[in-house]
Design a protein around this nucleic acid. Structure first.
Lengths: 147, 147
DNA sequence: ATCTCAAAAGACATTCTTGTCTTTTATAGA
DNA sequence: TCTATAAAAGACAAGAATGTCTTTTGAGAT
């Protein structure tokens, strides 16, 4: 698979909070995990990472939960990818030949570089806000479906 | 990483055999693993898969080893990807929303579909033969370098 | 202060990929 | 037929990603 499960959970988690935040201020992990049909504790750790990275806010204790903050809506997919660890996707040679760079390119270097840049651009430009603006009819449903 | 280690090993293994086959008929696993700086037994299993899939020929025993066959040079990267198990890269939703298809697309479905199709095309059209025809000066070196 | 709630943190289990070692099988040559 | 050789096959180990459970921490409510 091109991206990790963690990335998918992170994205769907953020989106769920962003969508639900119109109805309530705080969204609990229990609800998120249940609605997204995602392993609760595992999601918890990912959400925690997002909080530490400043993508989301959280509060402990009574009436606690997750909520959006000033950064949430501007967060790019690329940022989520980096946070969840799928780095190096844009670093290393796709053919896995190590000695490959613009000076000493592998046979597919240039073709792949073009494609990779397009990916990079798309992922860097697509933010949580962008995704929500597209406003698909069943968007919330598609987020809530197991991946 | 976008592709698995196994894929990288498979590709480099095939390329090494294809290149060396001009000098000798049979290439031994020991040599391949050493030159590519790749775990010997692990590579052995991957080479074995390639043989079973008809991508390479092999012979046991004295004067045995790996060699190319009628299919080797026409083998596409896509084929290698499938053999080494990185399937579903072109199947499932990149955002990992399951209920995502052309009828019920996720917000990025169309943009991603375009990119994915380009990848698919490139990987399907690029064969072992194509790679070797490009004839980079240090191609054999770049194959032989650890990934 | 104490209780309850919910995230955070830490220990542990499972699964998948990758890597290693040993034994078996097949082939050529003496 | 026997020996050497090299791939194939099988058992096992290490590592990373994913998943589960328990304990701790922090905040509001009583």
């Amino acid at each position: 698979m091109i991206f990790s499960k963690s990335f998918g959970y992170a994205l769907r988690g953020v989106l769920y909070v962003a969508i639900m935040t119109e109805e309530k201020q705080k969204i609990q992990l229990d609800e998120i995990a249940e609605k997204l049909t995602v392993p609760r504790y595992f999601l918890g750790k990912i959400m925690n990472k997002l909080v530490k990275e400043g993508i989301l806010a959280s509060e402990k204790g009574h009436k606690g939960g997750f909520s959006i903050n000033d950064n949430t809506m501007q967060t790019s997919l690329l940022k989520l990818i980096k946070i969840t660890g799928d780095n190096e996707m844009f670093d290393s040679c796709v053919l896995r030949l190590r000695k490959c760079n613009s000076k000493n390119p592998c046979p597919l270097h240039h073709e792949i570089e073009t494609l990779r840049n397009q990916w990079h651009k798309l992922l860097a430009e697509t933010t949580v806000n962008e995704l929500m603006k597209k406003d698909q009819p069943d968007f919330i449903k598609s987020i809530a479906t197991i991946a």
